[in-house]
Design a protein around this nucleic acid. Structure first.
Lengths: 161, 161
DNA sequence: GCTGACTTACTCGGATATCAGTTGTCCGAGTACCACAGG
DNA sequence: CCTGTGGTACTCGGACAACTGATATCCGAGTAAGTCAGC
């Protein structure tokens, strides 16, 4: 089990977009250049964020991506789900149905104790991620590394040229 | 992100082995037949459990697999790690190092706030799984479905014939 | 009838194909800006 | 000098390949039981 590489990219991209003043879209190429990432593939990940309503996109010159919501209204889970999808990691195949005495009408995803344990664990994971907003992450970084926001904003805008 | 199918199989297999009296190994083919699973592939998953010291194997006639430890000494996490490996799901690629002002000597897996958030979430997941032993799962099933243990043991031993 | 070795069948274990999903790339659709011509 | 129009360059968006890892299968190594011959 491993999360997609795009999760890390998307989180860093959102954080960077949070440091750019409103009304200034940042092209995918600028973000990609900032982290030395393949532009087209990062663009693909950003599209997923657009579909989830986390960022908005603008085409054409001076276009790009910007946050669609306030950082305090974006949780880390939102970003993860946008990239990975909302399906749970452990998907009960209901193998108990094929076992002796297995019945057709039973939903073993809810009945099977093993499935319940796995789901509860995943719920704890979700809860942890849903409890952290982008604004909190942003504030933590600003507190520990005060220079980063300015450097990032400057870097992204200069890279446009 | 999704867990391997083998995780579900391994958990059910361990639970079933817990219902068979000691000293009676169960062949992979018997477990596979019980759940209508491909025998060779289930065997492969069981090998991973052997390497992790969760079950022990015996070759030859009357051979098979049996639990190597007491159910109360086997956590759900043990089984998951045996199949999936101990690497964390979110693997920080340290993309901050390639960003401007990124430095070579820094371990961004520990410094990056995003990495910390993801790791903390995963820790919650681990903790949940580590807190459930096979004995607890077994007891829960026995409490809700008293007939299952006997049926399972009988089914596995009969299938041997 | 008992004991020993041999044969046989059974089971695990790892090496080998196959398939799906992630990773990565490319080109087309749309849009805003800019230049230029006309008034 | 102002305005409208056409061209141009830039950006996103989705369609298309490549590759890694999971899924599935097969055959060989090892072992214990069963069998048979000899004592």
């Amino acid at each position: 089990m491993r999360t997609s590489e795009g999760v890390e990219w998307a989180l860093h991209a959102c954080l960077n977009l949070a440091w750019v003043e409103d009304g200034h879209p940042v092209p995918a190429a600028a973000l990609a250049g900032h982290f030395q990432l393949p532009p087209a593939y990062l663009n693909k990940q950003l599209q997923a964020l657009v579909r989830s309503g986390i960022v908005s996109s603008t085409s054409g010159p001076r276009g790009g991506f910007q946050l669609a919501r306030k950082p305090q209204d974006i949780t880390v889970l939102d970003v993860v789900v946008a990239i990975e999808g909302s399906e749970e990691a452990f998907r009960c195949a209901e193998i108990l149905r094929d076992a002796p005495d297995g019945e057709m009408g039973i939903d073993y995803r809810n009945t099977c104790v093993i499935s319940q344990v796995m789901r509860k664990a995943e719920l704890a994971w979700w809860k942890e991620l849903a409890g952290r907003t982008l604004a909190e992450v942003k504030a933590t970084v600003e507190s520990r590394f005060p220079a980063v926001p300015g450097q990032t904003r400057h870097g992204l805008l200069n890279r446009r040229a």
